[in-house]
Design a binder for these strands. Structure first.
Lengths: 211, 211
DNA sequence: TAGATTGTTAATCGATTAACAATC
DNA sequence: TAGATTGTTAATCGATTAACAATC
């Protein structure tokens, strides 16, 4: 039983993707070894925090040496669950849905996008890469027996909660919501609301309050 | 000189868009008055935190009554700088750039998208709503004298830092980056890196570590 | 071995929550 | 006025940072 079963704070978890990203870059630069101090200057967290974060999941380093970049990358990939496979569908095949479907990196990380669903008949029948755009009315029948794990909501604000309700009943295990609404689902469903505008509004705030 | 000139922690600032969103919903439901306690149940922060947050910017409530929804919405809009106007350009007119250009709500909040820039000749010349897609080579000449404040990076990972460097030299005041890379800009430039994959990876982590 | 750097405990800092006097 | 709810101070909690013994 691994250490990560015990509670790790969300503050730590939300830093993991950044470690993952940076380690990938280091690998691409053929860096094989790194200390928490070097990581610190690159990533902007303190060396102490980095060591604390990593030690929530195990002792991946070696005293006097640091961390093996490739090994640490693999560990963080595993911790994040990026070595698993997730059947995924996207609801809404507008620009945003298409952008996500086109982002082949997700496929590489195990998020297998099986289909997009759309109500606009002009989009139904398209292929994004090799992913079909199906009529949203087929959603229930299509998903039957397919063990869909993640549903991505790329509809407008008005449809988001309705779509979420349908996804919950399929059932999916997680919802990734891009509609600008705070949708509500049972606690048993993993939910990430992504509000693109939030960070734009923060930009606006910071511009206004710059000295 | 308003209270908000003094330092407010980023933790508070990052909650403001959520208040803004919720108050908008309340207005649409014709709710005119709300207490921190009622807000608490809707938004999921404690009533105490809500009062603390709002008091960073001023006393908007009234003892024994609560907050006036419309007034509070206006105050938060003002605090976030959504009553100002920002000249904005988007670099990269792929699906994501188009999605953002199509999202007319940003326009309503004062983010005026003047043009998209794209290197793919098949996209140059398009119009998104009434926004022109121009050749990226025209970026410098187009922006001259136009006081562009915000640059949105919707390119691929490889071009992101180069584009950022160009934007910094225009200069823009802020960069909203959607490319999956941690770009680096001088401290004087407001920067928000949006990593769509981060929240997907968190979903993956939570799915894996559900009990 | 000596030097370096981790893993981990203890100290500090900041953010959240609780409590309550002020007051509408 | 009495009831309600804010604004604000004090207490608590959790996260970050510092320090250092362990050890490669």
């Amino acid at each position: 039983m691994k250490k990560e079963v015990k509670d790790v704070s969300m503050a730590v978890i939300r830093r993991l993707p950044k470690y993952h990203r940076l380690l990938k870059e280091l690998m691409e630069k053929d860096v094989t070894r790194i200390s928490s101090k070097e990581l610190s200057t690159m990533i902007g967290f303190t060396a102490s925090q980095i060591r604390q974060d990593l030690n929530c999941f195990g002792g991946f380093g070696q005293q006097g040496y640091g961390y093996d970049v490739g090994e640490l990358y693999n560990e963080i990939s595993r911790i994040l669950g990026l070595t698993s496979h997730y059947n995924t569908i996207i609801i809404g095949a507008g620009n945003l849905g298409q952008a996500i479907a086109n982002y082949s990196n997700f496929e590489k990380k195990g998020f297998h996008i099986m289909a997009l669903f759309e109500k606009n008949p002009r989009l139904v029948g398209l292929q994004i890469r090799d992913i079909p755009v199906l009529d949203v009315d087929e959603l229930g029948s299509y998903c039957e027996g397919k063990n869909i794990e993640i549903g991505v909501i790329c509809t407008n604000k008005e449809s988001a909660q309705d779509v979420a309700d349908v996804l919950v009943n399929l059932p999916v295990k997680a919802i990734w919501n891009f509609a600008p609404a705070d949708i509500i689902v049972p606690d048993s469903i993993v939910l990430e609301n992504v509000h693109l505008s939030d960070s734009l509004y923060i930009i606006s705030y910071l511009l206004k309050n710059q000295e």
